[in-house]
Simulated scan of single mutants.
Amino acid sequence: MNKEEILAKSRQENKNRDVAEISQTKDASRFAIIFSLAFYLIFSTLTMIAHKPFNSSIAAMETCVMFAVYLYKSIKTRKSEHIVCAVLIGAAFLMFSFVAIMDLFKK
């Protein structure tokens, strides 16, 4: 293969996106997940310190993001560890969502 063929194949694989841009987007996504998880942990800790009821809707939103990440990974890679994480986090997401919906409609 010559240089032009390699470049054409690379462009086709990356759909004409810059490799640095793809890497930056992945890093930004990872940072966003870690940042939101840190916020969730801090907020949950402050809720316990203030002796207030647990806010399950925030837990549902956080687990929804993590579930989406691992569901995508498990579909793309079919690795058993990603599938297990997707199932476990999916179960937590369903549980928190159920509790949040029950709290929402509680009279």
Rank of each mutant, 00 (worst) to 15 (best):
residue 1 M to I: 13
residue 1 M to R: 12
residue 2 N to I: 08
residue 2 N to L: 02
residue 2 N to D: 04
residue 2 N to T: 09
residue 3 K to L: 15
residue 3 K to W: 08
residue 4 E to R: 13
residue 4 E to S: 13
residue 5 E to M: 08
residue 5 E to A: 13
residue 5 E to Y: 00
residue 6 I to T: 05
residue 6 I to S: 05
residue 8 A to C: 02
residue 9 K to E: 08
residue 12 Q to D: 15
residue 13 E to H: 01
residue 13 E to D: 11
residue 13 E to Q: 06
residue 14 N to I: 02
residue 15 K to R: 05
residue 16 N to W: 12
residue 17 R to Y: 03
residue 17 R to D: 07
residue 18 D to E: 15
residue 20 A to W: 00
residue 20 A to R: 10
residue 21 E to C: 03
residue 22 I to C: 00
residue 26 K to E: 12
residue 26 K to P: 00
residue 27 D to M: 04
residue 30 R to N: 07
residue 30 R to M: 11
residue 30 R to T: 12
residue 31 F to V: 07
residue 31 F to A: 09
residue 33 I to Y: 00
residue 33 I to V: 12
residue 35 F to V: 05
residue 38 A to I: 04
residue 38 A to K: 01
residue 41 L to G: 01
residue 41 L to E: 03
residue 43 F to A: 11
residue 44 S to V: 04
residue 45 T to C: 11
residue 47 T to W: 00
residue 47 T to C: 09
residue 47 T to V: 06
residue 50 A to W: 07
residue 51 H to G: 09
residue 53 P to F: 08
residue 53 P to M: 03
residue 54 F to V: 08
residue 54 F to H: 03
residue 55 N to K: 06
residue 56 S to T: 05
residue 56 S to D: 03
residue 57 S to N: 07
residue 58 I to W: 11
residue 60 A to V: 02
residue 61 M to S: 05
residue 61 M to P: 00
residue 62 E to M: 13
residue 62 E to N: 08
residue 64 C to M: 05
residue 64 C to Q: 01
residue 64 C to F: 12
residue 65 V to H: 02
residue 66 M to N: 08
residue 72 Y to A: 10
residue 72 Y to N: 11
residue 73 K to I: 06
residue 75 I to H: 15
residue 75 I to R: 11
residue 76 K to H: 04
residue 76 K to M: 00
residue 77 T to R: 09
residue 79 K to V: 02
residue 80 S to C: 12
residue 80 S to G: 05
residue 82 H to P: 10
residue 83 I to C: 09
residue 83 I to Q: 09
residue 85 C to S: 15
residue 86 A to M: 10
residue 89 I to R: 01
residue 90 G to S: 09
residue 91 A to W: 09
residue 91 A to S: 15
residue 92 A to V: 06
residue 93 F to M: 14
residue 95 M to C: 05
residue 99 V to S: 04
residue 99 V to L: 13
residue 101 I to V: 15
residue 102 M to T: 10
residue 103 D to C: 04
residue 104 L to R: 07
residue 107 K to Y: 09
